[in-house]
Amino acid sequence: MAQKTDSNVYTVVFAAVMVVVVGSILAFLASALRPNIKENERFEKQQNILYAMGVNENGDDAGSVNFIPTDVVEDEFASYIKEQLVIQGDKITEDNEAYLIDLKKELAKIKKGEPYKLPVFIGEKDGKKFYIIPMYGKGLWDAIWGFIALDDTMTVQGVYFDHKGETPGLGANIKMRYFMDDFTGETILNGTQYAGIAVAKGNNDPLNKTKDDNEVDALAGATITGNGVSAMIKETVKLYKPYLETIRAK
């Protein structure tokens, strides 16, 4: 036996067979599960957008993040989100599937100098209008993304952050309520400049009482993820500035 498994021919044949077997198992699995996975991702996006505008099932205690349940999210999304817009250069069009636009791909198009689309979602709750903007950026290990809900004075009404692979207990805490809730009430304006909101260490305001300093308190041990969040907000605000100007003028 040992003789046989040592030969080069056997080794090559074994490797080839293994690749084919493993490849087909994974390909079969991926295509069989794809519809389910896509559906889950779609619901998640709707939940995230609603979460940012404050439509969620969070309790009063500053505990865990609770989304609208997946079985009703589709109806809730349809009732709260009044308009979905796509900004393409100077053109703004309505598109009911704007929430499915992959911001990562659009940002890549900007880098290549190709025409790109930017989605905006306009939600309405208790007679108040929310402008919800998607964000995408880099954390320490991998991608971070989220949504920011603004009113027409450019005050943040809520945010949602998520990440692909930040360190649990450190950078991953950007999706904890005690971090996200700090953004609510902050303004992205500094005078008339679109400054964004920075995640700042040592701003001597851990309770986040100052709402007009364009800063929230950073997470300990997560400097780079925090910087990533600051950069992501800044870039997004820069990108959407022309659109935001039109809302503010109204």
Partner: peptide, 29 residues
């Protein structure tokens, strides 16, 4: 008994990676 000793580390790696991906995909769905 059938793994060729010359490429056993690669075979081990493939087994781990496959198992992990299967679990990941099933959980995602």
């Amino acid at each position: 008994n059938i793994i060729p000793s010359k490429i056993r580390i690669i075979v081990q790696l493939i087994v781990v990676a496959t198992l992990v991906i299967i679990v990941d995909q099933v959980l995602k769905a």
